[in-house]
Design a protein around this nucleic acid. Structure first.
Lengths: 137, 137
DNA sequence: CGTAATCTCTTCCTCAACGAAGAGACTTCC
DNA sequence: GGAAGTCTCTTCGTTGAGGAAGAGATTACG
C-alpha cells in the first residue's frame, strides 16, 4: 500500500463520513441519531436495551432517541412476542427522507459503477463486504 | 448494479459513517467537530469564514468550534499573510488522538488490501478517487 | 482622508440531549 | 405464590452547542 494510495484512502473515508453527516443534517438528524440508525441497519432489529448498550447511552436518553426516530418515520416499535416487557426496534425498509437525501449521491455512484467491468465490480463489492465487517465498532 | 450489490454498498456506507463517528467519540469530538475536520482534510486550509459557510454555522459557534479543535490539538490558527483581519485554520499533519483511535481499523484494512492483486488494488483506488469526488457535499 | 464594508471574536440567551433516579409492568426462580 | 430481578419509560436537573447582536480591528473605496 503506497503512501499515495494511503492518502487517497484516508481522504476517501473522510468523504464518506462527511457524506453521511451531511445527509443526516438535511433530515434533521443529530450525530447520535445517525449512529443508532446505522447500528440498526448493520446489526438488525434489537431491543432498546441492546441499542442503549451499543450507543453507550443510558436507558432514559435511549427511549427518547427511539421516540425521535419513530416520530420521523425511520423506525418502528413492535412488542416482543416472547417477553412482554421487551420492545423490538426495527428499521423501516425505506426511510423516505433519508433515501431522498441520498438519491443524488447514489446516482453519481451508480454512474461510476457502470464504468467498470463485471469482474472489477466483483472486486469492489468483495472489498465492501470485507471492509464492512472489519470497520464494525 | 444488482439489488444484492446495492445492499452491500449501502451497508458499507453505514459502516464507514459509524466508524467515523465512533472514532470521533473516542476522541471527545462531536458530530460537527468531525464534520469540520473532514472539510479541512478534503478542502485544505481555510479561514473561519469559509469554514462557517461550509458547516452552515454562524460565526460565533464557528469560533468556538475552532477553539475546541485547536485545544484538542487537531488544528492550528495562523494569521493570514495578505489580510491582517483574517486567520487561516490548518489541519495538523498527525492529530495523534485520532490516529490512535483509527489505528486498529487501519491495520485491518491493510490486511484486507494485502489479499488483493496489484491490478485489483488499482481498481479499488481508482474507485476511491472517483467516489471521493462524487460524494463531496 | 474618512466612511463603509469585511472579518474574527465576545457575550448573552435559548434549546435540545444527556445522566441519574425511580416508577410500573413483566418474568424468573425458589 | 411471593420475592428478586429485568426491562422500558418518565421526570427532573444539568450541560453544552448554536443563534443573535454587537464590539474591535483591518481593508477598500469614493
Amino acid at each position: 500500500m503506497s503512501t499515495d494510495a494511503s492518502e487517497i484512502y484516508r481522504r476517501y473515508i473522510g468523504a464518506m463520513v462527511l457524506h453521511g453527516l451531511h445527509a443526516a443534517r438535511s433530515c434533521g438528524l443529530g450525530g447520535t441519531d445517525l449512529y443508532a440508525l446505522n447500528l440498526l441497519d448493520l446489526n438488525g432489529p434489537m431491543t432498546p436495551g441492546e441499542l442503549s448498550a451499543q450507543t453507550g447511552l443510558t436507558t432514559g436518553p435511549t427511549t427518547r432517541l427511539i421516540d425521535r426516530l419513530e416520530e420521523a418515520g425511520f423506525v418502528r416499535r413492535t412488542p416482543s412476542p416472547d417477553d412482554r416487557r421487551k420492545v423490538i426496534v426495527e428499521l423501516l425498509a425505506e426511510p423516505a427522507p433519508l433515501a431522498e437525501a441520498l438519491a443524488p449521491a447514489r446516482e453519481k455512484l451508480g454512474d461510476i459503477f457502470a464504468g467498470y467491468s463485471e469482474e472489477e465490480r466483483r472486486t469492489l463489492f468483495d472489498y465492501f463486504a470485507r471492509a464492512t465487517e472489519a470497520l464494525r465498532p
